[in-house]
Design a protein around this nucleic acid. Sequence first.
DNA 1: CTGAAAGCGCTTACAG
DNA 2: CTGAAAGCGCTTACAG
Lengths: 346, 346
Amino acid sequence: MAVTLKDISRETGINLCSVSQVLNDHPRAQSLRPETRKRILETALRLGYRKNQMAASIGKKFSNVLAFVHSDMGTVEYTGRIQSGVIEAASRRGYTLTVHHIGDSPENLIRKLMGWRIAGVIFHVSKLEQLEPFTAELEREKIPYGTVNLSNPDGVGVTTDDAAGIEEAVRYLQESGHKKIVYAFSGKDNTIPDIEYKTRRIEGFRKGIAAYYPEGTKPFLLPIDYSKSHDREYMTKILKKILQEKADGVICESDVLASALNNIAFFKGYSIPEVFSLIGFGGSMISETSFPMLTTITQDFEKMGKLATDSIVDAAEKKNIRNIRNQLIPVSLVLRESVKIQKEQK
Amino acid sequence: MAVTLKDISRETGINLCSVSQVLNDHPRAQSLRPETRKRILETALRLGYRKNQMAASIGKKFSNVLAFVHSDMGTVEYTGRIQSGVIEAASRRGYTLTVHHIGDSPENLIRKLMGWRIAGVIFHVSKLEQLEPFTAELEREKIPYGTVNLSNPDGVGVTTDDAAGIEEAVRYLQESGHKKIVYAFSGKDNTIPDIEYKTRRIEGFRKGIAAYYPEGTKPFLLPIDYSKSHDREYMTKILKKILQEKADGVICESDVLASALNNIAFFKGYSIPEVFSLIGFGGSMISETSFPMLTTITQDFEKMGKLATDSIVDAAEKKNIRNIRNQLIPVSLVLRESVKIQKEQK
DNA sequence: CTGAAAGCGCTTACAG
DNA sequence: CTGAAAGCGCTTACAG
């Protein structure tokens, strides 16, 4: 059986509570003789004492457990990187991270989360509605929660400043001599999908065109059905659209979309960036493994996870409850090979 | 405050232990009147009772917590997919998954794991030595543990049958008319790295050459320094080596390596599979987003995670303790565009 | 078959 | 400042 406080108490002959206080570095332990404290610490080490987290948390309203909840979404790469940041911050703050999937039954998940008396939740979902089954109970129990890669009007939400990133990409293309640029996004038709990051990016494109291109330039939006991105016939049509429009620069909603465009261009005998310049979004692995390497707008997913976690822990520990609203992480344009400099930048 | 058994007991006027038994579906609850059971269940639901997991586990030697421990390794994509499988299985079996990173201090991690009285651990590391700081204590406390993507002679280990996959790739290339094939792996020189999956794959290549090529054919191994895979000059040298050897087929240790080779070929004006056929390993996203799409050996990472988790849970619950040794998951060769069929297969 | 008690390993509020 | 007790929310072994 595992070693308990009782064992240490018996072994040292010191009162169990004093043992507890010393091992927890409780202020009261200061009043004990240094020698006594030392003896307790040594005995604990020698016997291999491991505080029972269950027992330690049982009396408290909350445990030092955090939950990372994600729905099946997007590329695993992003989720993984966000989670890395979450783990790092959670661990640094002394919390244990549990990971969950929103499956068919949110009710079961709620039961589990509440059962662990979690200190807070970080949600990685694509739409705020997905939080609905959870919010009432979380709020009732005053458990802080937040979102990553999605802003959350009512609390913690950490996102990257995608609009600024796209705007910067537009500026860069304009200054390097591009006459007509297109924004390609994944969607089935011209209606803009109601997914926050998508609308944010489109908004950035619109602002960029308005700011850096002659007045009256219409922002050209090109929807691509992502499920058909491997369909050569379909993608050829998309390519033709771009060529017909005589676009010399394409900014994509994501690196995978940029890669798909890059591939179809090659397939049809063109080459990037000669036929047109291409900018991806995300800074994912694929942007580095593509040929040519993709100029892209990189997002710091690890930081996203860290910031969200720190905010949630702050809230759980009732510190900095102000300033934990939505946070925007800057993105940066990484220059690689998929953009043709048609004229030197000013 | 959260609703407790006591609240339900008070509300219904039924003994607390009976309430506990009914809510846990304990056999003894069968002896109560159905009506009584129904009343308890309804009251629990109405009050929003959530069993306190801490309290429930405190008396027991183990909690229903599983740990997934990984070191900083490889592509996040693989780790993420394995973890998905682990979460699914853990959740199905009624366990909560905690995720940890082997950081600078294994001792801290051990303390945390033991503190949660975890039921079992799934390790995702690249070398068995990395388990060393953990095994003594885990074994002493009889906590089952296992590895994924790495075999574990002393216990649970789930891997894919990489050797068979490579062997199959060799057969495929031979039967489709390839005269000389090369195995490219990531390494700084000709010494074979002491990483299990690497040696397994090389072994598969050797066996394949021996089985399908004329006696005396030397297996040609080509090390590529992966850290330089974006270095055009370095990669050009690698490409030249392949061309000098007049190889018409290259099997790669990984999809990223295959992609790097694909890119450098394009860069130098050649095209795959015309200049030579290329086969990747992993079935990762990059194999689908490359142009041409990579023929690759796919691994079922989700299944790997699931199998390992089920075995660990079985062991924790003392079922099927036999047959939980190393398990090999079959891989499959997915035919796409990077192999040139030089002659019809028999 | 059923009920009341003891105990899990901690923490903390309360007397001395 | 220090010591002994009560209590956290469950589970389970033990009497009736």
